[in-house]
Structures are given as C-alpha cells and as structure tokens.
Amino acid sequence: MSLGIVNIDKRQFIDPMDDCYGWKIQEYLANDMPLDLVWLFTIPVDNKSAPAPPTDQSGKPPRVPVGHWAGDRVFIVDQECGWTLEHLLTPEDITELVAQYPAATSNPLLLEFALENFEGVRLPGYRHAGTADTLFPADRVWVVRNLTERWYARADALLDPEDCCGPTLADRHGLGLGDLIWADIGGAPSARVVRDHRWGATGSMGHRLDVQPLEIIQNSADAAQWVDRSEEAKECLHEMNMELDVCEYRY
C-alpha cells in the first residue's frame, strides 16, 4: 500500500485498495475517493441515526457507519512522505501506543505502524440520495469544522450553489468539502499543496474535524469564536486542482 488513512483515536486505518480506488493519487481522484471520504466525518442533521453501512461477503475489512470518524484525529500518510510517530504525535500519544503495542516499538513510521497494529476498515460506502434525503438535506449550508483550531469552511463558498448537494457534490462537478478534508489531512499528496497556506506545513493533519450544517455553529453559545476560513480553503483547493489536475481525473 502506498497510502493509508490513519485514525489515531480509534486505532483504525483505511487502505484505498480495499475499495478498489487504485494505487496512485491520480487513481484515488479519478475513482472519487475524496468524495466518498466526506461521509466518514459527516453527522446527520438533528442527531438522527446514521445509515448502516452496506454489507458484502467479499472478505474485505468491514465498512464503518457514516460519521464514524467525526471529531477524531486523522492523518493521510504515504510511504514516500515518511512521517514518523515523533513528527505527528504528542509524546503522550507515543507513550500510550508503545504501552498498547509493545512489540511494534521498533517501527517509527506511522503508516507501517498502523498497518501492523491497527484495525483495517473501509469507507461507509454511502452516496447522497438527493434533495429528498432527510439526513443530509440539500437546502442546508454544510461546513467542514476544524474543532481543534475552531475554524470552518462553507460548501457554498467553495462551490456554486447549484453544484452543492448537501455535504457532497452534484454530478461530481467542482471541488468540495471532501476534497478539502482530503487535502487538509495530507492527501494532496502529503503536505505539498497546503504548505504555503496559513494551515502550516501539515495542514490539519491530526486535527479533529467534522461536517455539519452551518446552523450548528450559528446557534452555538460560542458562535463568535468560530472563524470563517472559506476563502483560504477555496484557494487551497484551487492550488490542489492546478497542481494535480483533479477535475481532469474526476471526469
């Protein structure tokens, strides 16, 4: 595996090959992995129950439900990038991992550590059902929230309104919230695209993210403390598209 998505909090990882997204960044983009990634972080409106993931008898790792990784610390890491545990995790996290997996302490690379020790899972396998979907309605403005740094980015600022379909895209057009999460947690690839932005060298790798309607922020007691970073996010996605020709691969 050349790339993996690692959840430190749940001790899980996703191998793109398990869902046949391919081997390389261009294949992940062409096969819509960033679009599907958004459902790992999306919480249905009004605390409704998330849809159960589809099941199959393929013998592959199990799928997780929609929203299963919302609020967790997640990294996209690849073999070439070589991020080590010390680069990405706190000393407290490393101490806890070493205590939990004492036989694996000789391997400092986060991706290899995850492959050897964490549970393999798959993306929820959910696709938005359209405007009639009561769990993810298209008449709401959906946002990516960074719970660690308390900023958010609006889907309607990244896309034309007609291209939004709830938290995802209509007809695969443009770059949306799933692409922003993908770029921000290391899939652009690694930190290359986001390195010159205010996000810093590793973007939001390891930050706690979720996707919810904008009113969750607007109606909160601390609404004034949240920062709208939609324009910076749009610039980041533009650079990602220019560098990796995302739209070319997606059509």
Rank of each mutant, 00 (worst) to 15 (best):
L110F: 01
H197K: 09
G186D: 03
L89S: 02
R208Y: 05
I181Y: 03
A104V: 00
D245L: 12
Q100S: 09
W83E: 07
G166Y: 08
P62K: 07
A132G: 12
S230M: 11
A201N: 09
S204N: 15
Y21S: 06
M17W: 07
G206R: 09
G174F: 05
T134D: 14
A104E: 10
Y249D: 08
G120P: 12
M17G: 11
G67K: 07
Q26W: 15
H238R: 15
K24F: 13
V211Q: 08
I14F: 08
V194T: 13
A99L: 06
I181C: 03
H197G: 09
S190M: 04
F75T: 12
E92N: 04
S190R: 04
L159S: 06
C164D: 13
I216Q: 15
K24E: 14
A224D: 14
E86I: 04
A104S: 14
I8L: 15
F118W: 00
A183E: 09
D19P: 00
A138M: 04
P54C: 03
W23S: 11
D36H: 13
T95M: 01
T168W: 05
G22F: 03
H128A: 05
R145T: 13
D9A: 04
G120L: 00
T95G: 14
L159D: 09
Q218T: 15
F136G: 10
D15N: 15
Y126T: 08
D9H: 02
V77K: 02
M1F: 10
D93L: 01
P189Y: 08
H128P: 00
D72Y: 02
W69V: 06
S190N: 10
H197N: 06
T168K: 08
I5L: 04
W69Y: 11
A223K: 15
I8F: 07
A233L: 06
L214N: 09
C164T: 14
G186I: 02
P53V: 04
A103Q: 09
L110Y: 02
D156L: 09
C81F: 07
W182D: 01
D222H: 10
F113Q: 02
A155S: 15
